[in-house]
Amino acid sequence: MGFPVRAGLVLGCCLLCVSGVGAAESSKLKVVVRPPIKKTLPQRPHAARPEARPVQSAEPLPAESVAIYRHVGKDGTVFLTNRPDGDGRYRLFGRFSTGRLMRAVGPDGVARLAERYAGRHGVEPRLIMAIIKVESGFGAKAVSSAGASGLMQLMPGTQRHLGVRDAFNPDENVEGGVRYFRSMLDRYGGNVSLALAAYNAGPANVDKYGGIPPFEETRSYVRKVLALYATP
């Protein structure tokens, strides 16, 4: 099941906060995600990253902060959500800046997304992770000079074609990117090199040149991804 608009934020909080669970609680973790009431506002510059800890006072907070609530089930499962929707079992766990939560997704959180969607679309997770590493260096807010955005660097036209509403949402971006790469694999009969070249330079160029286009950027891109993919 896909996460909605703010899913990457909640996932990031899980990675950030689970280490604070007491020893008496199980390490099992379940994220309860509900559709956000409002879309995330643009991140403002911060002089320093705030530490992830419960907030004890009701001090004014910046508009882009997100409240995270928690409750612990009878079996020790930890539930986290950004919207308890009146469920009295949840208590405020803390408030975190959206930028902090996005950064907290990190490679570990991205790996979970890669595994989920690679499995769904029949692609090797390690290959998707290699693509993400070369495309954005695991930067969920990365933007290229050509306008490609997010972890898998989706171009605006590709985003519209895939129905990706928020390219900076890790969940939406990875799902769309994996789906698009799967379509390139299908187009070129499972040839990974050609699919990678098409992902980088577009299928029109691969078709035009009958193989990997003679662009140094594209050839370098294919080499880098394949090298990472081949590394255990």
Rank of each mutant, 00 (worst) to 15 (best):
M1C: 09
M1H: 14
G2H: 15
G2F: 11
F3Q: 13
F3T: 14
P4Q: 10
P4Y: 04
V5D: 07
V5G: 04
R6E: 11
A7L: 13
V10L: 15
V10H: 04
L11S: 09
L11P: 02
G12M: 04
G12K: 03
L15Q: 10
L16N: 08
C17K: 06
V18T: 13
S19A: 14
S26C: 13
S27N: 08
K28N: 14
K28Y: 07
K28C: 13
K28T: 15
L29G: 01
K30E: 12
R34L: 14
P35C: 08
P35S: 13
P36F: 00
P36T: 01
P36D: 02
I37W: 06
K38A: 12
K38V: 03
T40F: 04
L41W: 12
L41I: 15
Q43W: 11
P45N: 07
P45G: 05
A47D: 14
A52T: 14
V55R: 06
Q56V: 15
S57N: 11
A58C: 01
E59K: 12
L61N: 10
L61D: 11
L61K: 09
A63K: 12
A63I: 01
V66G: 02
V66P: 06
V66Y: 10
R70N: 02
R70M: 13
H71N: 02
G73E: 12
T77V: 13
T81L: 06
R83C: 07
D85P: 05
G86R: 12
G86N: 07
D87M: 12
T98G: 15
T98M: 00
R100A: 15
L101Q: 08
M102S: 11
P107S: 11
G109D: 08
G109H: 04
A111Y: 05
R112E: 04
E115D: 06
E115C: 00
E115G: 05
Y117N: 09
Y117R: 05
A118G: 15
A118T: 01
H121Y: 15
V123P: 10
V123A: 04
E124Q: 03
P125W: 08
R126P: 08
M129I: 09
I131A: 01
V134T: 12
V134F: 01
E135D: 11
S136H: 09
A140P: 05
A140R: 09
K141S: 15
V143R: 06
S145E: 00
A148P: 04
A148V: 06
A148F: 04
M152Y: 08
Q153T: 11
M155F: 03
T158P: 01
L162G: 10
L162D: 07
G163N: 04
V164S: 12
R165T: 09
F168K: 11
N169H: 00
N169A: 11
N169D: 15
N173L: 07
N173K: 07
G177V: 13
R179T: 03
R179H: 10
R179Q: 09
R179M: 03
Y180P: 08
M184I: 06
G189S: 02
G190L: 02
N200H: 06
A201K: 01
A201D: 08
G202C: 00
P203S: 15
V206W: 06
V206Q: 01
V206S: 09
Y209V: 04
Y209R: 00
Y209D: 10
F215I: 10
E216P: 00
E217C: 08
E217I: 01
R219D: 12
S220E: 05
Y221C: 08
V222D: 01
R223A: 07
K224F: 02
V225K: 00
V225T: 06
A230H: 05
P232K: 11
P232I: 05
